[in-house]
Simulated assay, not measured.
Amino acid sequence: MNRDLREFRRLERLCLEQAALSTMDLARTGLLKVADDCRAAAEAIEARSPPRGAFAGAVQALKRAPLAWRVGARS
């Protein structure tokens, strides 16, 4: 699971870097969408992993709180 998380984060960074370099709007938009999907997949993996302690659990809860707010704003 940790390996998958690292891979999704790496792909997210790669897509964001390539989007910044892209001169075509369609390519940039596609790369940004893929980066967003990779971020969502990585966050889902992080949410499934058990917290390592009370502090880690609080950090995970704080990470998820803004995400729920952003998702509601898109609707």
Results as ranks from 00 to 15, higher is better:
M1L: 14
M1V: 14
M1I: 13
N2R: 02
N2K: 03
R3P: 08
D4V: 01
L5I: 03
L5P: 01
R6I: 08
R6S: 13
E7D: 11
E7V: 03
E7P: 00
E7T: 04
F8L: 04
L11H: 05
L11G: 04
L11A: 04
L11N: 05
E12G: 03
E12R: 03
E12M: 09
E12H: 04
R13I: 07
R13P: 00
L14S: 09
C15E: 03
C15W: 01
C15Q: 02
C15R: 01
L16Q: 04
L16G: 00
E17D: 04
Q18A: 08
A19P: 05
A19M: 11
A19E: 13
A19S: 15
A20P: 06
S22V: 08
S22I: 08
S22W: 06
T23M: 12
M24Q: 07
M24P: 00
M24F: 04
D25C: 05
D25E: 14
D25L: 13
L26P: 00
A27N: 10
A27S: 11
A27C: 09
R28I: 02
R28V: 01
T29S: 09
T29Q: 08
T29W: 01
G30L: 06
G30D: 07
G30I: 01
L31E: 02
K33H: 12
K33R: 11
V34Q: 05
V34N: 05
V34F: 02
V34I: 13
A35L: 02
A35W: 02
A35V: 03
D36W: 00
D36E: 06
D36K: 03
D37R: 02
C38G: 03
C38P: 00
C38R: 01
C38W: 00
A40R: 04
A40Y: 09
A42W: 02
A42S: 11
E43R: 03
A44L: 07
I45C: 09
I45S: 10
I45G: 10
E46H: 05
A47F: 15
R48T: 09
R48N: 14
R48K: 14
S49E: 14
P50Q: 14
P50L: 12
P51N: 12
R52D: 12
R52P: 01
G53H: 05
F55N: 08
F55C: 10
F55K: 10
F55H: 13
A56I: 06
A56F: 09
A56W: 06
A56L: 05
G57Q: 06
A58T: 14
A58R: 13
A58Y: 11
V59Q: 10
V59S: 10
V59I: 13
Q60I: 09
A61W: 01
L62K: 07
L62E: 14
L62M: 13
L62Q: 12
L62H: 07
L62Y: 09
L62T: 05
K63R: 15
R64K: 15
R64G: 13
A65I: 03
A65H: 11
P66I: 06
L67Y: 07
L67A: 11
L67F: 06
L67V: 13
A68V: 07
A68W: 04
A68T: 08
W69G: 03
R70M: 09
V71C: 06
G72T: 10
A73E: 15
R74P: 02
S75A: 15
S75V: 15
S75K: 12
